[in-house]
């Protein structure tokens, strides 16, 4: 029970701290002080969860307090602007999602420029997926044939979400089968609507996997290079004849002028978190794909992503104030 014991100690510590003062902090080169992870979304989503996992590991590794600060707003732009303006000392980091790449095109105005930030690591992703109720026609081809004559609708986590853009881009541009988009407040509610057969199709990323595994929903296609291990029966778009890749990811960013040594240190630390066997199993089990890219590769990847999502945003034709 070592894990349990350490937690109990922590508990006792927390209880003590409630009445006493802070413990002493040991000095180190980096980080010299408390790290703040600014999360671009409210508590509860995967971005937040990922930040908390990372925060916990950094705290264990360096013995410095790590604070997770949820700063939801303007689709993630509020948090990005805050970190973009922060001191480039590696103590204020941004944890955000694909939204930061999408927002470059989606939002008419932002309070920061993307080059004020440097990507530290983009190491987990989950492909955009479309699924339907099991009572609907079978594979993607049959489904599209049925959809063409049925004026279908599809649900997603919201206007301008990665799931919305990927699905609508596929339907409108690639498959030439326009559908009515029905936005829901968050991915969970959109999946629910599909489970209850209220909507014709749902677009989502990892959130859909348990439902597909149980056969409550039927996966039509995943927008990844290869099939996802957690749902091996769902073909990729490419297999179905529509070469198309769109993935949702979680990324950690630092202010642009952060010394590259610090960026590398952070990059290595986050890579360790993802490589940790226990985390690895969990993440893969949830249907995530793990990537080991260097800092330079991450920058290049981000650039490609901005271009790719930008094209989708323009093709779909949405903007947000």
């Amino acid at each position: 029970m070592p894990a349990t014991r350490s937690c109990l100690t922590k508990l006792a510590g927390a209880a003590l701290l409630l009445t006493a003062s802070a413990g002493p902090l040991s000095a180190q080169a980096y980080p010299p002080d408390r790290i703040t992870l600014v999360v671009a979304f409210a508590p509860g989503g995967f971005v937040d969860t990922f930040a908390r996992i990372v925060g916990q590991k950094l705290n264990e590794k360096w013995g410095k307090a790590v604070t997770v600060e949820n700063k939801a707003g303007a689709g993630g732009n509020t948090a990005a602007a805050q970190v973009a303006a922060a001191k480039p000392d590696g103590l204020t980091l941004l944890v955000t999602s694909t939204a930061i790449a999408i927002n470059e095109t989606l939002y008419k105005k932002r309070d920061y420029a993307l080059d004020q930030l440097v990507p530290v690591a983009i190491s987990v992703s989950s492909p955009e997926t479309i699924a339907t109720h099991p009572s609907k026609p079978g594979n993607l081809k049959d489904y599209l044939a049925w959809a063409k004559s049925n004026d279908i609708n599809f649900a997603s986590a919201g206007v301008g979400s990665g799931s919305h853009l990927a699905a609508e881009y596929f339907l409108k541009v690639l498959a030439k089968t326009p559908a009515t988009h029905i936005p829901f407040r968050g991915g969970a509610l959109s999946v629910q609507a599909a489970l209850g057969n209220q909507v014709d199709m749902v677009a989502s990323s990892f959130g859909i996997i348990p439902q597909v595994q149980e056969g409550k929903l039927k996966g039509l296609a995943v927008a990844s290079q290869a099939r996802v291990a957690a749902m091996p029966d769902v073909p990729t778009y490419t297999e179905a004849g529509f070469p198309f890749i769109a993935e949702s990811w979680v990324g950690v960013f630092a202010p642009a002028r952060t010394p590259s040594a610090i960026v590398e240190t952070l990059h290595a630390a986050i890579a360790e978190v993802v490589a940790d066997p226990a985390n690895r199993t969990k993440l893969l089990g949830m249907g995530y794909q793990l990537h080991s890219r260097s800092v330079a590769e991450t920058s290049a990847y981000l650039k490609d992503e901005v271009a790719k999502w930008g094209e989708m945003v323009r093709a779909v034709g949405v903007t947000v104030e």
Binding site: L17, L18, A20, S21, A22, A65, T67, V68, E69
Partner: peptide, 11 residues
């Protein structure tokens, strides 16, 4: 200060 910053680790 003790409660929120140190015990509860709030920003």
């Amino acid at each position: 200060a003790l409660l929120f910053r140190f015990a509860l680790n709030q920003a």
